[in-house]
Amino acid sequence: MMPALVKALSCTTGRDIDVEGLKTILIFCGTGLLLSVVAAMTYGLNLAADVF
């Protein structure tokens, strides 16, 4: 899956893309998306009262 994505990005941009660099970028983007979703789900909840 990853080599196909790298090949497609390389063809569309015309630049050589490194697989490891792309993995790092995808991990950071995924982490940010996960934190955003968790923050949106807990918006308005008083988590301190629920825990204790």
Rank of each mutant, 00 (worst) to 15 (best):
L45E: 05
L22M: 13
E20D: 10
V37C: 07
S36E: 10
A49F: 03
T13E: 07
M2S: 09
A8C: 09
M2C: 08
I27N: 13
G14Q: 00
C11Q: 12
D50W: 04
A39D: 12
G30D: 01
A8F: 04
G30T: 04
G30N: 02
L34W: 01
I25C: 04
N46G: 04
V6T: 01
R15G: 05
F28Y: 15
G21M: 02
T12Y: 01
L5E: 06
D16G: 09
L35A: 09
M41S: 05
Y43H: 11
T31V: 14
V51N: 08
V19G: 07
L9D: 04
I27Y: 13
T13C: 00
F28S: 15
L5D: 02
I25K: 03
N46T: 01
D16L: 12
Y43C: 15
L35P: 02
A49G: 04
D16Q: 12
K7Y: 02
C11P: 02
V19T: 14
G14M: 04
A40H: 10
P3L: 03
I27E: 11
L9Y: 09
P3A: 04
S10P: 01
I17F: 03
G32R: 14
P3G: 00
R15P: 00
A49S: 10
L47V: 10
L47S: 04
T24P: 00
D18M: 04
L22D: 00
L5H: 02
G32Y: 06
L9E: 11
F52P: 07
L34H: 07
G32S: 13
G32H: 11
A8Q: 04
I25Y: 14
C11K: 12
V19L: 12
G30S: 13
T24V: 10
F52S: 14
N46E: 06
R15C: 08
R15Y: 05
L45A: 07
V38G: 08
E20R: 09
L34I: 03
M2L: 14
V38K: 03
S10I: 06
V6C: 01
V37Q: 08
G32L: 02
L33M: 08
A48D: 11
T12F: 06
D18Q: 11
L22W: 05
I25S: 13
L26R: 12
L45G: 00
F28G: 13
F28Q: 15
A4K: 15
I25V: 14
I27T: 13
I25N: 14
V19A: 15
A39K: 05
M1H: 14
M41G: 01
L35T: 08
T24Y: 03
V38S: 08
T13F: 06
D18R: 10
A8I: 07
V19Y: 05
L47E: 06
S10N: 03
T42E: 13
G44Q: 01
V51Y: 08
I25L: 14
L34F: 10
L9T: 03
G44F: 03
V51H: 06
P3V: 05
L47Y: 01
T12C: 09
C29P: 05
L22Q: 02
T13Q: 10
D16C: 12
F52N: 11
D18W: 04
L26A: 12
C29W: 05
L26Q: 11
L47G: 02
C29Y: 10
C29E: 15
A49Q: 04
I17Q: 00
A4D: 15
S36M: 07
G14N: 02
L9A: 09
F52G: 15
A39W: 01
A40E: 11
A4Y: 03
N46Y: 06
S10Q: 11
G14T: 01
R15E: 13
